[in-house]
Nucleic acid binder design. Sequence first.
DNA 1: TTTCAATTTAGAATTATTCTAAATCTTGAC
DNA 2: GTCAAGATTTAGAATAATTCTAAATTGAAA
Lengths: 142, 142
Amino acid sequence: MKPRSQQPDDQHLTEQLGATGLRLTPQRQQVYDVLRHKRDHPTAEEVFIRAKKSMPEISHATVYNCLDALVKSGLARQVTLDRGATRYCPNMHEHGHFHCDVCATVFDVDLPEQAMKLPKGFKADHFDIAIHGVCADCAKKK
Amino acid sequence: MKPRSQQPDDQHLTEQLGATGLRLTPQRQQVYDVLRHKRDHPTAEEVFIRAKKSMPEISHATVYNCLDALVKSGLARQVTLDRGATRYCPNMHEHGHFHCDVCATVFDVDLPEQAMKLPKGFKADHFDIAIHGVCADCAKKK
DNA sequence: TTTCAATTTAGAATTATTCTAAATCTTGAC
DNA sequence: GTCAAGATTTAGAATAATTCTAAATTGAAA
């Protein structure tokens, strides 16, 4: 039976990271936990601040390194909206990001099952779909 | 008959900008021309360097302002890929951006006609679709 | 236990973007 | 034609986001 301290599934993390030639380190675990704990698409800076709460000695460069490692190994995604800082999302199901232009909240939205038509010979690895508009709450207020 | 010096259609630019409460200035015209001249999804810095060739006195802040104005008035789109600088695209037809992870080239790709299913009450303004993968040329080389 | 490569650290440095105050420009009113 | 007002540009300075660096640390394999 798995030790209760191991969560969500260290073995899974180790496997995913290992498949990319990377190790699961306490810092990477922490950064991953931060992403999973509050799924509000935080920036690297926000992740850094949150991670420092439980791991005061973690550094900026480490947070960037950890985020890169998680993205590279398929444990997180980058969300790039407009010209601000890149955000991060631990939801690895195929989905899009709805960005409300009023309250600036980012929502995960499901995608229709649809094969994108690529030019001949192109090979797709993944899709990043961002939708800009107004969320239900902000639409109501107008 | 329109003067040949006016291109692609200053009246159209003036109208689009005007609809957003903005003016068509020589700088905005120049930045727009830069985007249309070489459609390689340049960064603000690249646009700045290119614009300076014909307009040496243009400043950084102006280029950012001009790009913002073009985006705001529907004459250009922002392309955000990974954590680098934002890129710009003058193609206002609904399309996606294919980013080759090998040669870092960005290609415009057509989108299937498909209505995205949004959560109830949400209102979409536009979509930004980025596809990451390998282009035909780089796929061949492997 | 030792070695070695991966990783972290703490800043420094670079890149990307925004801000500021003064100057300039354009348009409309008179 | 002049003037006023607001938009815009300018030239840096400043801030934000990200990357780099060299030394230290860590963990796994030998």
